[in-house]
Write a protein that binds this DNA or RNA. Structure first.
Lengths: 254, 254
DNA sequence: TTTTCTTTGTGTAAAATTTACGCATTAAAA
DNA sequence: TTTTAATGCGTAAATTTTACACAAAGAAAA
């Protein structure tokens, strides 16, 4: 299906695209998932177009699955990018030539590099559960640390920036972690996630008190062993209470 | 220009529209500006389409000016509506027939009532400064109290709901009032604005202390006279400090 | 086996913020 | 002149946030 672009586009919105910033958390860092276009060294966010009979939210899920192999992830729309020249930021002639060399001349005619408005979504996934799988357009699909993200095609660097801002805003007003951490985790691990997202440090005793006051966590009778120090307890989110706190909204004030 | 829809659409994005929820504050109530389509009793938000050489933000301003006569207002994108059937919620056959009777059969063919994604903006305006002026498509352009808003065309009721949520969210994290109140206002007037937007009551003494602690207001040597009580002082926002507080972000915690 | 090093678990006092509330004053209306 | 209703100003109590110390655990080093 992806192989015949023209045919696909007859069933899709041409003037609207959709791009996903996929966040993962690994080794104390936030990572994003990027794709490298086949035959080029141009990186971009996984994106695509909305089908005529498909909602934007459904499209976000489908596109993420098709382009990266991810399934059933937490997705949140955060901003729609409507600048006139957003599609000509980076695609230098060189890249276009490489794309044409790979996909054949005229393959993208009237489809890519035209005026398109793009809906931005961010996704939160458990890093270890993810097996990034490139699609037919893509040579490579892999995680990048936020700090190392290269110059991306189009306005995708700006998209990541805005996605991060939206994620931070979300983290200040809702519980976070259920979609980013493994089922069981230690308090220091959760704290590191918060510190990474909000980009600041917390006193571990005060952090524990505050997080536990939300009543969304349960401490297990297990500990994480192996490290050269006292074994920390494992915790897990109580889904119902986590969702409830998310619906009500909390204010993470520390 | 509006008179020849087909010609206009050659220069515009067909699959993307843009709708504005215009908020005003009057007599202690939030109001929204609605349009009634010529020859019908169908009400909707002022909306339109983005030109090919125009950013979404620019389009929002232009559309608002063309459709309501408003100029240079505070505009904020808040959500993009991408449901499949959002354009068929309300337009019963009856309405379509009336529109055809007014504008001529086929006038909207292939333009309205097709799959369109709509970018939602909200606007904040000084109620008294506004002279709502209907455009060529519109019989009537007037303010409605939020509580009285009728069933609107398309998904515009949902748009207003989401716009209000976004406005509330904004008010909790930024100073608000500069775009909604006249230049000079009293403390009780500002308090009522906050109470209306956030839908709760405040103790007037604590409210004054908190608002003044942000250091964005200056008290004038004038008072509002005429009421059967002690004359309250007039205040005005210090624009630089207001903007600064808006950029930094404040947390209105009361 | 013992010592060292690092990290975890727990509690309390001080500081800051938020909330509750009282009283004198003002201005129009009765 | 009196009454009524709202404003200006300030303080005490309650709550929340912040700062901080020491004992215990577990692997690694000696």
């Amino acid at each position: 299906m992806e192989h015949n672009l023209k045919e696909f586009f007859d069933k899709a919105l041409k003037e609207v695209s959709l791009d996903c910033t996929v966040f993962g958390f690994h080794e104390g860092e936030l990572k994003v998932l990027l794709l490298r276009w086949k035959g080029t060294d141009g990186w971009s966010l996984p994106g695509g177009h909305i089908l005529l009979d498909e909602s934007a939210d459904d499209a976000a899920n489908r596109i993420l699955t098709q382009r990266t192999g991810l399934n059933d992830v937490y997705l949140q729309q955060f901003y729609t990018f409507g600048n006139v020249n957003r599609y000509t930021y980076h695609p230098e002639k060189e890249l276009l030539e490489k794309l044409e060399a790979t996909f054949g001349k005229g393959f993208f005619d009237g489809i890519i590099f035209r005026r398109v408005v793009s809906i931005g979504y961010y996704a939160l996934v458990e890093f270890d559960q993810v097996q990034p799988t490139p699609d037919w357009f893509t040579d490579e699909c892999r995680w990048w640390s936020l700090a190392d993200v290269p110059n991306l095609l189009f306005d995708h660097n700006e998209m990541i920036e805005r996605a991060l801002k939206a994620l931070r805003q979300h983290a200040r007003n809702h519980p976070i972690g259920y979609n980013l951490l493994p089922e069981k985790f230690t308090m220091p691990e959760l704290q590191r996630l918060y510190e990474t997202i909000l980009d600041r440090q917390f006193d571990r005793r005060n952090f524990q008190k505050l997080i536990m006051s939300y009543d969304i966590l349960e401490r297990l009778d297990e500990k994480r062993v192996g490290a050269a120090n006292k074994s920390p307890y494992l915790y897990r989110f109580v889904k119902e209470k986590y969702d409830q706190a998310g619906a009500t909204g909390i204010s993470f004030s520390m």
